[in-house]
Design a protein around this nucleic acid. Structure first.
Lengths: 239, 239
DNA sequence: CGTTCTTTTGATGAGAATCAATTCCTGTGG
DNA sequence: CCACAGGAATTGATTCTCATCAAAAGAACG
């Protein structure tokens, strides 16, 4: 079932049954990945693109000194490497942060969609544009926000995105990401990451135990993060 | 003339005369902007998208404390707000950093392109994907690179992009951006930005006077930056 | 030729990395 | 069911990077 993908796309515009059928047809392949496994490797030239159906994944780049920067966190419903359809060569890797299940479509089939289904094409294009919008928000957070606000912002973002695909339970969500992985996402050392998390805990904004994150004070968390979800385009309108 | 746009697009794939004609037709409007003027304002819902024909521009977001983060630097040939075609609402502003001239196309005309010119549509889509690739590289630079490497990386990137639209002269290019603006791009204070620039000068990697940047040691600059231009997709292949 | 913007320098303090351990968890084998 | 191994989280101490404050020196402009 492509349910998470449909939930995701439908947050931005109406998706017709015909369009869903085209996607179901194109994305009939499935694959599983274990924790730590690359879903897509840097330098490769994939001939298909994948949607995450279950699990958490991350785009990342490695540096010469062994450092790693995560540039995107992916949740079910996300097209993790749709950009490879046109970029051709992967300039980064994508790794499974938890056991992952993906569905994928051959690029030849995606090309056919661009030839025959313009509205669906625009929805796929939009999906990559939202990726870009999230990247911009991350740049702002990395460049100008206090680290505590950065983390708060990321938690707000994840909550809203997870909610869109029914992966929240009240103000709580399952989050199987280690502090070291979060450090690679925020560009911090593990030690400092830990202290920043404790800061949010101390102020009673979140709880985070057993891979389960709860937002205890949604209003204050948003204020601290200056979170404005416009950039996520969570509004159904003609595209 | 749309020359910079064509030079830009042609770096990634062959563009037919017919496709060029479609673009010339769609982008027949022109506008000028003075330094500091918004080309597109945050919160607006543009009905057209613009290509920079001359000048430098930046995408930016403002924070509550008055801080500013630049999320992208634009040069002639760049589609500064093509993403607004599908995102609809601007979640950031775009400002002219030097006097700018733009050509623009109504979104209705872009939509028509997606209905009738699939290959051209893919090229436009690709343009926004490269934006995203650049964003990812910026995230890596902000998160994990030393500040000096970050600046070196940005200079390498700008050089390659400017070269593609014939705006370099040997290893030199015109760069009418102040240190304060660069600080907003790298997420630094002006004072520290100045010191980082002096670091590159001291090591004999660059010269930067009178809005003119020269790369004095391309090899060492790339090494310091760990610059790999794969992410810019500067390779002509079928898309 | 003063006004304003930009670049530069110096001094100080806060934030974040690093180094070094210790504690906590969880799955595994005896 | 308990001991143990290895990963993950946490704490403390120290060092270094970078922001901030303050001001001077240059450069551009009406």
């Amino acid at each position: 079932m492509l349910t998470p993908l449909f939930l995701n796309l439908a947050r931005h515009d109406f998706v017709s049954d015909e369009e869903k059928a085209i996607l179901v047809e194109a994305m009939s392949h499935r694959k599983e990945f274990a924790v730590g496994q690359d879903i897509v490797s840097v330098g490769s030239r994939p001939t298909y693109s994948s949607v995450l159906l279950a699990g958490f994944a991350a785009r990342y780049k490695l540096l010469a000194d062994g450092g790693r920067q995560i540039t995107a966190l992916h949740i079910p419903g996300d097209f993790v490497d749709l950009h490879a359809f046109l970029l051709k060569t992967m300039d980064h890797g994508i790794v499974a942060l938890s056991p992952c299940q993906v569905a994928y479509a051959e690029h030849s089939d995606l090309k056919e969609i661009t030839e025959k289904a313009p509205h669906l094409t625009r929805l796929l294009w939009l999906d990559t544009l939202i990726d870009g919008a999230i990247h911009r928000e991350w740049i702002v957070a990395m460049g100008r926000r206090a680290k505590k606000s950065h983390l708060a912002h990321l938690i707000c973002e994840l909550f809203v995105r997870l909610e869109a695909v029914n992966l929240t339970n009240g103000m709580t969500f399952h989050f199987p990401i280690s502090q070291a992985e979060m450090a690679d996402a925020l560009g911090l050392s593990v030690v400092h990451m830990n202290r920043v998390i404790q800061g949010l805990r101390r102020e009673g904004l979140i709880s985070w135990v057993n891979q389960s994150v709860s937002i205890l004070d949604w209003k204050k968390l948003q204020e601290l993060a200056e979170f404005d979800q416009t950039y996520l385009s969570m509004k159904r309108e003609p595209r």
